[in-house]
C-alpha cells in the first residue's frame, strides 16, 4: 500500500514516537476507539489515486496519547487541500473533555491556518506534551502522503 503510494507521488511522510515519556495512567482514560492511521475511504486500499484525485479522501492521523488517553484526528483532503478536520478519538476523562471542547476548535483552525499559509512544516517550542498538535502534524504528513503534493 505505502510502496504503491510512494511510487505514484514521490512523497513520503513517516512518523515515529521517540524520546518517549511513560504516559500517565492516572486517569481512567477509557478506551476511546481509534482507527489505523492512513488513508480511509472512499477509495479503499490499493485504489488508483488518479481515478480519485477529484474526490474527497479522508486520512486518519496517528494515535497520540495526551496523558489522559488516545487522541486521533481525521482530515479530509480534496484536490490536495485539507477541507475538514474532525476527531476520531478523544479521552473520556473529565479533564480532557473540558480541554477538548476548547482545543478541538483550535486544532481545527490550526490545520486550516497552516494550509492557508502554504507551509511545508512548522517550528515551535518543543511539542513533547502536546498530543493534539502532534496528531495534527501527523495528519498534515498523511495529507502529503495522500495528496501527492
Amino acid at each position: 500500500m505505502r510502496r504503491i503510494t510512494l511510487a505514484v507521488v514521490g512523497t513520503v511522510a513517516a512518523l515515529v514516537l521517540l524520546f518517549s515519556y511513560r504516559t500517565s495512567t492516572g486517569g481512567s482514560g477509557g478506551s476511546a476507539g481509534t482507527a489505523p492511521p492512513g488513508i480511509v475511504g472512499p477509495t479503499g486500499t490499493g485504489a488508483d489515486p488518479a481515478a480519485t484525485s477529484a474526490a474527497t479522501v479522508s486520512v486518519n492521523g496517528s494515535v497520540e496519547d495526551n496523558g489522559f488517553g488516545p487522541v486521533q484526528v481525521r482530515i479530509a483532503v480534496s484536490a490536495g487541500r485539507i477541507v475538514d478536520v474532525s476527531t476520531v478519538s478523544l479521552p473520556q476523562d473529565g479533564h480532557s473533555q473540558r480541554i477538548n471542547s476548547y482545543a478541538v476548535p483550535l486544532l481545527r483552525q490550526e490545520v486550516l491556518d497552516a494550509q492557508s499559509a502554504r507551509v511545508d512544516t512548522v517550528t515551535g517550542a518543543t511539542a513533547t506534551s502536546d498530543a493534539y498538535l502532534q496528531s495534527v502534524q501527523a495528519a498534515l504528513d498523511a495529507a502529503h502522503l495522500g495528496s501527492g503534493s
Binding site: A13, L15, L17, S20, D141
Partner: peptide, 9 residues
C-alpha cells in the same frame, strides 16, 4: 508522551 518525528521527501 512522545515526540513525533516526520520526514517529508
Amino acid at each position: 508522551m512522545g515526540m513525533p518525528i516526520s520526514l517529508h521527501v
